[in-house]
Every structure is written in C-alpha cells, then in structure tokens.
Amino acid sequence: MPMLQRFQAAHSPPDQPGDAVASSGVSGDSPESRLTARIQELESELRELQHRAKNSLQLVISLLKLQAGRIRDPDARAAYEQTMVRIEALAILYRQLHESGAGTHVDLGRYISALCEAVREGTPGALSRVPVSVDSDPIQIGLYEAMPLGLIIAELVTNSLHHAFPEDGWIRVSVRQQAEDNRARLTVEDNGRALPAGFDATAEDGLMLAEALAGQLGDTLSTDSDAAGTTASVSFPL
C-alpha cells in the first residue's frame, strides 16, 4: 500500500461510534467488562453444580428404591422410609432451583407444596390419603434457608401422618411473614390425636433433627398438643 493510503487508513474515522473503542481493546479489557464476564462465568458454574446435585440426588433415590423390596424388618423399613423423605426434600429443592434458573432462590409456596405431596405419597397405607393443604405468603427464599426449612417440614408432616387420624383427618401447612421483623413463621398443624402424656421430642430422631435445624434458622421448634390436635411452628429469616 502507498504511504498516503496507509496514512489515510490509519487516521480515517470508524464506521460506527463504538468501533474505535472496540478496535483499541479498551472496552473488552475494562474492569467493568471483566467483572461482568466473571459474574456470568460464576452463574454458569453455579447452574452446572445445581444440575449435577439434582442428578446425583435422583440417582441416590433410584438406587435406594432398588433395595426397598429386600427390607423385611419393620424398624429397618421405617428408617429407610425416613431417609427417602429427607433425600427427596433436597432433590425437590435442587430440581426447582434448576428449573427456575433463579440462581439461589426458590418460590417457597411451590417448594412446600411439592414437598408435602411427595411426603404424603411416600407414606404407606391409608395414611397416604390424609389431605395436606399448603397456604403460603408469596416468598422467595434462599437455598441455605430452604434446605433446613424443607427438612423440618418433611419431619413434621411425616410425624403428623403417623398419628392415629380420624376418618376426617387433615394436615395444614402455612407460612406467614412477620410484620415486626424480617422473618416468617412456618406452622404445621393437624387434627390427629394428642401426643401422649410425657412425650419426649428428643427421643424421636425426626423431631430431634427438626429441633437442631430450627436452631440453624435462629429459633426453637414450638410444639403444642391437645385433644384438638397438634401444632408445631418455627420462624426463619427472609
């Protein structure tokens, strides 16, 4: 190329306003663009991890179900069913996280509904027909609050389903935001027979786990039982 043409090419204005910045490499190398690219990369890695967690939990569930028919001992069967409920609570959570693409938050009402349905369907015998209703304020909850909360719900609903229910038995799960602080309260109630006198919650593995998980959420599990039924509640941060 002649010298004059090379000079004109080097000093002619770009066709588009952004061409000069792009050609100089300033935009792609700016701190803002590097930060944006890194955030997108981390979000992609998070989605991949959630997808792998979902698949891994589903694989564990499938493998456990293969062994179900070999369990004859009643105590072993009860432990197996309790374990399945806990794993299912986590599997549902990761599945909904993956489906929503919302990062680390889920629709709490949708999660609780799916969880309660799974717990009810996984309960053997006539107790699986006890209706479980869910009523939740519109709440988006983070993964690290949803995990212990989901396990608490699984334990409480399982405990309610194993009560001796009348023919018109029911279980109600509700979540309400508290106006006085940035927390909400979960309540699980049923109309089953009252807990026996002197009942020790710490003697029940499931309720003992629920107590420990309530502590992770910054509260204690409150339980009240009488002839009208049993009510358990716990608050959690939003």
Rank of each mutant, 00 (worst) to 15 (best):
R193P: 07
A20P: 00
R183F: 09
I139Q: 10
P14A: 08
G198Q: 00
T83C: 14
V188N: 09
R34H: 12
A154M: 00
G25Y: 07
Q8E: 15
I139Y: 02
S136F: 03
D181G: 03
P124A: 04
A118C: 02
L57A: 09
A212E: 10
A20W: 13
P166H: 03
I39V: 14
G192V: 05
C116A: 10
S136T: 15
K65M: 14
T123E: 04
E167Q: 05
A164V: 04
R172T: 14
P124K: 11
S44C: 02
S30D: 06
L59T: 02
V234C: 06
V234N: 06
E204A: 12
R6N: 14
E41M: 01
A228T: 12
L64N: 11
V157N: 01
A37D: 13
T202Y: 07
G28M: 04
A214V: 05
S233D: 08
L195M: 08
R86F: 03
D135I: 07
G125K: 00
E32K: 08
E180T: 10
I112S: 02
G192C: 04
A146R: 01
L221S: 12
P148V: 10
Q140K: 13
I141M: 02
A146C: 09
E88R: 12
S222L: 13
A194Y: 08
I153D: 00
S23M: 15
T36W: 15
Y111I: 07
M147S: 12
D107C: 04
L115A: 05
D219C: 02
T104A: 02
M147W: 01
A22K: 15
V21M: 01
G18M: 10
L66H: 09
L59R: 13
E41N: 01
L46A: 13
L151I: 07
A114I: 02
K65G: 12
E117K: 00
T123H: 13
E117A: 11
S235F: 01
T187N: 01
P196T: 06
Q67S: 11
D181Y: 07
P138G: 07
A20D: 05
Q177V: 13
G101H: 03
G198L: 07
R52E: 01
V188T: 06
A118D: 11
I139A: 01
A184E: 10
A197K: 04
H98R: 14
Q40R: 15
T230H: 05
A228E: 11
I39A: 10
T223N: 04
Q40T: 04
E121H: 09
V26M: 08
G101N: 12
E145C: 05
E43Q: 15
A203E: 12
E145R: 04
E117H: 10
G125R: 07
L93V: 05
R185I: 14
